[in-house]
């Protein structure tokens, strides 16, 4: 099985093309692929509990694993216990481990 790793750096409130990642990730998951979206930089801004953008909820409902970079969260004042349901705090060490797995396609956005 191929794994897909989307590294999302963009703030969905600023850049509507994050929809592209959400739709592609969900479609790949529907086809029985392992899919992870790793939020980093301003990509973590929608991960705060209470943020109104619905795309992360849709990803979680689709079964896509959603991780948020701890360094980026800390820089933006988002505590690990302030994350919305379906988003898990992570770090670049985990990202590197995923990149090093065979049959993993990585897309930076």
């Amino acid at each position: 099985m191929t794994s897909y790793l989307f590294i999302e750096t963009r703030d969905p409130f600023e850049s509507r093309d994050t929809e592209f990642v959400a739709e592609t990730a969900a479609a790949l998951k529907e086809r029985d692929n392992e899919v992870t979206v790793f939020l980093v930089q301003n990509g973590v801004l929608a991960a705060r509990r209470g943020a109104r953008d619905p795309y992360l909820s849709r990803l979680a409902q689709a079964g896509v694993r959603v991780l948020a970079d701890d360094f980026s969260l800390s820089e933006r004042g988002i505590a690990g216990d302030d994350l919305r349901v379906g988003v898990t705090q992570s770090g670049v060490e985990t990202l590197v481990e995923m990149l090093a797995r065979e049959e993993t396609k990585a897309v930076w956005h």
């Binding site: 750096t9 980093v40 930089q41 970079d69 360094f71 670049v92 060490e93 990202l95 590197v96 481990e97 990149l99 090093a100």
Partner: peptide, 15 residues
């Protein structure tokens, strides 16, 4: 992006 790239490179080297 540059900062994130530096962090990824460092983490990979430490692994």
């Amino acid at each position: 992006n540059s900062t994130t790239a530096f962090r990824i490179i460092a983490a990979a080297l430490r692994r």
